[in-house]
């Protein structure tokens, strides 16, 4: 099968959806003729013109609130934040308006808005260009939160997001954007709330999110040489969260480690742990463990930056520790 980068995969989904649905438009800084800081809209400006590929001033609250109004009145905005950190200037519009609009209007308004941006730590981007923040949004009723880890999933999930009548946050880790992977031709969708089992195994369950999936798979490869069999689950969407796949896996393995670059307190791992304790307590043969990025703002210097992100060796050690319990 042909290979595409993450960025090329979502671009393909966006292009075909825009060709079919004239109500889709994209806003963001430099997403017009420039094609996006991360090449997310390359070539689309020439095809669809400036109203559908709309360059904005640096006015995040303004254009997010504007896109809320657009979504309420018959169009389907895609907001390209470039760096997802910039979404925080629009937090009130997201939480008080976009997430609540369908409920406030007793379902008579839809909120088909797709909000995308690059997340994650790397390349000394420092603390204003490294945030992920998805646990915050998963906490709130009204959002769909997508964190894909491979190009084929990115394409299918992006296509689903473009058809959704709910607000969708589509978060792409910077370190994955230019990774290549096999991507099917043509249009296809992947439903939200359906995890992918990235590797099957019997000795322990690893839930890994976004950029942590590849690192966790690398750790599992090394352990496999010693006959240790790990199962790796990529939830793909944080909200809705596919707990059934996690619970079925823990039923089989009896052990669970959650690997996530975002902060540990009140995070996705805490939620998964609580649900497994609640619904799968008897399946557990060991305490649930979490491995997260450090609970600090992101530092600049490479030595400091490396110190806060879980790497394959650290994941490998955490698995060994869990198996020793």
């Amino acid at each position: 099968m042909r290979e595409l980068t993450f960025v090329e995969a979502t671009l393909e989904a966006l292009d075909s959806a825009m060709a079919r649905d004239p109500s889709i438009f994209v806003v963001g800084e430099g997403i017009g003729a420039r094609g996006g800081n991360f090449n997310t809209t390359v070539g689309l400006f020439d095809k669809y013109g400036p109203e559908r590929l709309c360059d904005t001033p640096i006015s995040e609250r303004g254009f997010v609130g504007m896109c809320a109004g657009a979504a309420m009145t018959g169009t389907r905005p895609v907001v390209d934040f470039m760096f997802f950190d910039f979404i925080l200037d629009a937090f009130g519009e997201l939480v008080n308006q976009i997430a609540k609009m369908q409920y406030m209007s007793s379902g008579r308004l839809k909120m088909p808005i797709l909000l995308r941006g690059a997340i994650g730590i790397g390349h000394s981007a420092a603390t204003h260009h490294s945030g992920s923040y998805y646990p915050i949004f998963a906490h709130l009723p009204g959002f769909r939160v997508v964190v894909p880890s491979v190009p084929s999933d990115a394409k299918g999930l992006f296509a689903t997001a473009l058809q959704s009548d709910d607000p969708v946050l589509f978060l792409e880790h910077k370190s994955l954007l230019f990774n290549r992977g096999e991507v099917p031709e043509g249009e296809y969708t992947i439903p939200f709330g359906q995890a992918r089992v990235a590797r099957e195994g019997t000795d322990c369950t690893l839930v890994a999110i976004g950029s942590m999936v590849d690192k966790t798979l690398a750790a599992c490869e090394r352990l496999a040489e010693e006959g240790i069999s790990c199962e790796v689950i990529d939830p793909r969407t944080i909200a809705p969260l596919d707990m059934e796949t996690v619970l079925a896996s823990v039923h089989k393995t009896g052990r669970l480690l959650i690997v996530d670059e975002t902060f540990q307190p009140c995070g996705v791992g805490a939620e998964i742990s609580a649900q497994v304790i609640d619904r799968g307590f008897d399946d557990l043969d060991a305490p649930i463990r979490r491995l997260n990025g450090a609970h600090v703002p992101t530092p600049y210097s490479p030595t400091l930056e490396e110190a806060i992100v879980p790497e394959a060796a650290e994941i490998e050690q955490s698995i060994r520790d869990l198996l020793a319990e």
Partner: peptide, 17 residues
């Protein structure tokens, strides 16, 4: 405040459509 932005967005929809 948000009503100002949302009315702007309605304007964007209507222009696009």
């Amino acid at each position: 405040g948000p009503c100002i932005l949302q009315a702007t967005g309605a304007g964007y929809s209507f222009k696009l459509l």
